[in-house]
Design a protein around this nucleic acid. Sequence first.
DNA 1: TGCAAACCATAAC
DNA 2: GTTATGGTTTGCA
Length: 200
Amino acid sequence: MEAYVKNIGGTWFGIACEKDRVAASTFGENESDVLESLRLSLKFQMPLRVSTLNSFSEGALSAMKNIHDGNGTTDYVPLSMERLPTYTQRVLRTVSQIPLGYVTSYGGVAEAIGGGARAVGNAMANNPFAPFVPCHRVVSASLGLGGYGGGLRTKFDLLRRERQGFVDPKQIFVENGTLTIFPVEFVLEHFEKTHGQSFF
DNA sequence: TGCAAACCATAAC
DNA sequence: GTTATGGTTTGCA
């Protein structure tokens, strides 16, 4: 398994690949944290060797940077999820359909595809594909932030950059069900109302 | 393997 | 604060 890492604009981005498919992705403040996180996602099942960038990895890392900056991406980056448990795959596919500028809740995902809110939280915690699978767009039903592997500050900053000025909730269709999504502004406003500037 | 218990990025009361 | 909850992981034989 090959690893590719790059610092873009002060943030380190990293992916683990098997041929031209991404098996894990992450980003963070420094290179060693990113590599460690990739190894953890892969559960050490195979050795990871850091390789020099090629055109596939350059493209994928650049797409990550765009998502990170709140611009989303129109690039299709192939993810290899087949080793993950079935339910986890379903959750990740569903979360992938939440558009830029919207969020949903753990329970909302559960209602749409079956299972429980907590099980959805489990799947999020094991998401190896941040930020391609935008688990930062899943928050608690009370509009609190919920959790985030990279830290709540990181989740909050991602959401803040994704503001689009949407005002109404809406529904999207996923698998067999319907998923209710809310403008990200709902979360940001709730955060300000309950915590102000002094949370972090 | 197989099973039970523990573990949570929850939600509803 | 308490309780119900469900997929995954872990431990142990």
